[in-house]
Design a protein around this nucleic acid. Sequence first.
RNA 1: GGAGAAAUGGCAGAGUGGUCGAUUGCGGCAGUCUUGAAAACUGUUGAGGGUCAUACCUCCGGGGGUUCGAAUCCCUCUUUCUCCGCCA
Length: 424
Amino acid sequence: MLQLNYIRDNKEDVLKRLATKNFKDAETIINKVIELDNTRRATQKDGDAIKAEANVIAKQIGELMKAGKKEEAEIQKGKTADLKLREKNLDEALKSIEEDIQNLLVQVPNTPSTKVPAGKTPEDNEVVNEQGTKPELHAAAVPHWELTTKYNLIDFELGVKLTGPGFPVYKGKGARLQRALINYFLDKATAAGYLEIQPPIMVNEDSAYATGQLPDKEGQMYHAQIDNFYLIPTAEVPITNIYRDVILKESDFPVKNCGYTPCFRREAGSYGKDVRGLNRLHQFDKIEIVQITHPDKSYDTLEEMREYVASILKELELPFRTLKLCGGDMSFASALTYDMEVWSAAQKRWLEVSSVSNFETFQTNRLKCRFKGADGKTQLAHSLNGSALALPRIVASLLENNQTPEGIKIPKVLVPYTGFEIIN
RNA sequence: GGAGAAAUGGCAGAGUGGUCGAUUGCGGCAGUCUUGAAAACUGUUGAGGGUCAUACCUCCGGGGGUUCGAAUCCCUCUUUCUCCGCCA
């Protein structure tokens, strides 16, 4: 959520930047917000004046009672009835105006950083770099959904029986590979200075709201209605919410947390080759990295996180490319996002495995995650997060890219974790 | 699940209807002393709204109520603790 004062002070700039995100109703909503805020201030001023008056009278009554002047006190009491009524009306008006402002503000996406390329579709994303070499597969090479069946690694049909489509069952070396990747990713993150967190995988409404899943993405989360809990779509939600209503010290920066969790996404309306095999699932595993930083440092941090993710992909010997997302393809909350995509050699397409974003104050404003600066002032921190990494598409490309007539070779760095060098 | 107790500032912990946004201690910050540090002493130290800046307003777990006036009384919800029951 954007800061109201920032919008007031930088209206033209905010509108200009929202335009690169192709947000249509920007001007209407922002004008309305500013107008409501003016009304809010005036209303509060009136209300405060009445409250001040009532406070003075109440104090006088106290003194009169103490002095035994009961009759004079009664006279003063008579004055308050009208004040109370006006106070109540103004308080109600204020509450309703504040709600209106809030309802409008949550509709406004984050303003993109000035570094964000213009554009509307994924084709407009800027390719920052491409690293590694795409493998030449042998003649009999097949996509991963055939490999998982051939080597009995993943049973998609069994998942349908137990739960439904998009809930695969991993078996034997398939299950072991999952566990190996999780441990490898967590060890890497820990070595890079991230504190490992094992959070709940269900969150309450407050948490879902604070990181922006609610109100707009309600349909994308699984909802346990009896207890009003939401299954998390990413570890970002519980981990970032650790810092809800927290005032950090400047010396706490940078806050670096990582966590492994299953992630749950309803992903309504998806179909075709995009969802085949491991390409898109309702339940999948992901290691998330989160940082909270000083506003001056967040873009350096973003680059650091991007390089960190790249370093893992290099170790895994996967060809990948880095995209800087254009305005139209960015998420609602992001100010700047890099997507990392690995090459899936049998599908012959790029698969997104990580998305690294700087949210600036967009998340921390809703979270009320602040810090006390050197000047003693309390201000909003910046938040960033990224996947490091999501498992299914990594597994897909590992299986496809490393297939040989003898079997699927495991990258060297993973062997200590899997305990085997080849799947055959 | 049943019974009882509690929820106050970073922490501990006073305050049971009016001068309480809140005594005090610890912690934090600044200063005095010291070559430096410790100790001691002095000062300072919650958040939000509002204002050019003051005034001023709100917040004592959340919500509602009583009252001229609520941290303090009433209702309700949530959470924590103790005891009992059940249990991986």
